[in-house]
């Protein structure tokens, strides 16, 4: 179980550009939860995920994973428990290295690395089987450099890599936003399947309200660094986009605005 306890994060604290990105966010993520996160511009969605991943130290508040405090654990040490897929498909893989080299790097997430061969001959079958699951024909291209792949192919590979070594928490940061609609759908299906089959605890930021409603068992809406909606279970299943917008208006007294958010 992941617990965020009154996390506060300022950017440029004390300067003229001071921004309060997270204003005492508290959240209890149950094991197996698949939470979709939406919010208007600058709501703190990505900051929230980066904070969980360890990209910065919060100004105050605590972060607990399965009862263990991880607030001050640096990013690379937290990586042991956390799988991550970024919005930019180029960020999740190494372009100059081959598919199998990338997968071998991901396979050892959280383990010590020594002077054994990076890619072990015995692992190739496993890599092929993993790649065959995503149905892009990559299983026959183990020796190709990742730089030769399309954005969608790279994001699919990143999705695999993030979940190869079982993560206790999977963080997806608008991981379909930079892709064309068809590819985005493919990645979403892959996401849905992997998360369901392996019961991964997942936090997914999305810019698409329908996606946020269709996927997962819980939805939270952020606004100006605070969680203003937390809907789960049956209530979430019956929710429509109009209901969401109406509830936002009822709480905030303003219209939901985001230049990126897809409302239909």
């Amino acid at each position: 179980m992941l617990v965020l306890d009154r996390i506060v994060k300022y950017f440029h604290k004390g300067g003229v550009n001071e921004v309060l990105a997270l204003n005492g966010v508290s959240l209890e993520v149950e094991k197996g939860d698949f939470i979709t996160i939406i919010g208007s511009n600058g709501a703190g969605k990505s900051t929230l995920l980066t904070g969980v991943a360890g990209g910065f130290l919060p100004d105050s508040g605590r972060l607990l994973l399965d009862g263990e405090e991880i607030t001050r654990l640096p990013e690379h040490r937290r990586a042991k428990f956390i799988g991550r897929v970024f919005q930019d498909p180029l960020l999740g893989t190494c372009a100059s290295m081959t598919i199998e080299q990338n997968m071998a790097l991901a396979q050892r997430r959280g383990l010590t690395r020594g002077l054994a061969a990076g890619v072990k001959a015995g692992d190739r079958e496993f890599f092929r089987a993993q790649l065959a699951q995503i149905g892009l024909g990559l299983e026959n291209r183990l020796h190709d450099r990742v730089g030769l792949l399309s954005g969608g192919q790279r994001q699919s590979l990143t999705m695999l890599m993030a979940t190869m070594a079982e993560p206790r928490v999977l963080l997806l940061d608008e991981h379909t936003a930079a892709l064309d609609p068809k590819t985005a759908n493919h990645i979403l299906e892959l996401t849905e399947r992997i998360v369901r089959e392996r019961r991964l605890t997942t936090l997914m930021v999305t810019h698409n309200m329908n996606q946020a409603l269709a996927l997962g068992n819980r939805l939270i809406m952020l606004h100006r660094g605070e969680i203003i909606l937390d809907i789960r279970g049956a209530e979430k299943e019956n929710l429509r986009v109009q209901d969401l917008l109406a509830r936002f208006y009822a709480i905030k007294g303003e219209t939901f605005s985001s230049d990126k958010m897809l409302l239909v």
Partner: peptide
Amino acid sequence: DNPQMIRSLG
């Protein structure tokens, strides 16, 4: 090549 990626891999 990609420091952010390899940090996220521990």
